[in-house]
Design a protein around this nucleic acid. Structure first.
Lengths: 202, 202
DNA sequence: CACTTGACTACACGCTCGTGTAGGAGTTTG
DNA sequence: CAAACTCCTACACGAGCGTGTAGTCAAGTG
């Protein structure tokens, strides 16, 4: 899109640096001065282009959302269950996911809307797929949270695996672990029913 | 333990206030002055009792870890799969979980050790339970991350459910949603095998 | 009584933050 | 040519932060 010969405009570089640093350190943890230094410009230019830190975050939110929805369309075009294959989730979406999760935890409306959208589509998908949970909404919400969990705990998961999950190989590995959580039934329907009844007693 | 007639010592009140505010707003988001105000003391007293913000966090880490391990023993004593029942996870551990997750994301060694311990015990448990994932370590790491995910996204999940999951009722609901993720096999073993092969091609 | 000790407060420090302002350099436009 | 506009930098301001210091007050101890 905006890609020039081999470099980006200063505005795009600031936005990319912001997404990277916000995603790594959190919104509070990354200062405008840090972002400016990362992008190789003065801190005043950040303000010139985006007005304020909050406005910069909004711009990052919109950009990340746009890109993620693009990828989402690519994946649904590629067809159904294959979307769960970690190898098809290109490493290029990792910084975006990381940023959106951080922004969401920081109270972003845009990111929260993305989460709700994900819950909605999981709900619809599970219906079409022929799954019948007791509480479909709760099921969908749990699934949505689960999909993001590895991004939040990437340091801990990487340490547990002895392998950096920000690399394609590591991400594929934890992605497969996630897949098997969805594949292997942990308890039988009868046991689940028992637990359900027991919790209703209280 | 330290419980007096109806109040706590100033030190305990500071520690409880820190766990609450750190958990709600994150470590950076809660200042020593905020914590002091929440505990009803001067900011100097926080320093007097704990020395520094980092030391205060360490004290909170150790305290929360201790309490969580206590609860963990209670649950394993109560027996196996019942530990997954949300109704047995008392609301009193919610603030502790919230705090530990925040502290973990902020790079706490103690909290990270708790995560690794969780992965280890899930790994052992899955072996004893007769589950055979392709990559047991990755499976266990994914499970550990999943268990914590609803704490991270509690605001988003609450919004999606239209129900506050910090309440026992709401927590039971999302807990059941999580349980059904573990119960309903999403894809067959054959499909999983196909995906596995496809990702190995790249 | 004099002295010490621990809980506690008030206040000031240096730092970093987001933000505001003034202005320079290069291009476009009348 | 000059005015205007955009991109960009340098620098200062006030606020909030963690931290340091000095001192008050009450309880215990010889």
């Amino acid at each position: 899109m905006d890609r020039r010969i081999d470099d980006l405009t200063a505005r795009a570089r600031i936005r990319d640096a912001a997404i990277r640093l916000f995603g790594e350190r959190g919104i509070e943890g990354a200062s405008i001065r840090d972002i400016a230094a990362e992008a190789g410009v003065s801190s005043g230019l950040v303000r010139h282009h985006f007005g304020s830190k909050e406005a910069l975050r909004d711009a990052c939110d919109r950009y990340a959302k746009e890109r993620m929805l693009e990828v989402g369309e690519e994946l649904t075009d590629a067809g159904g269950v294959a979307a769960l294959d970690p190898a098809t989730l290109h490493p290029r979406v990792f910084p975006l996911q990381l940023y959106l999760v951080r922004s969401m935890m920081d109270g972003s409306e845009t990111a929260a809307a993305l989460f709700l959208g994900a819950v909605d589509s999981i709900e619809e998908w599970s219906t079409a797929y022929g799954i019948h949970p007791t509480d479909r909404r709760a099921y969908a919400a749990a699934m949505a949270a689960i999909k993001l969990s590895v991004f939040v705990f990437r340091d801990q998961v990487s340490k547990a695996l002895g392998e950096d999950i920000t690399t394609p190989a590591g991400y594929a590995r934890i992605g497969q672990g996630l897949m098997e959580v969805f594949t292997i039934p942990l308890i039988t329907e009868e046991q689940a029913e028992q637990l359900r009844k027991k919790s209703e007693e209280n």
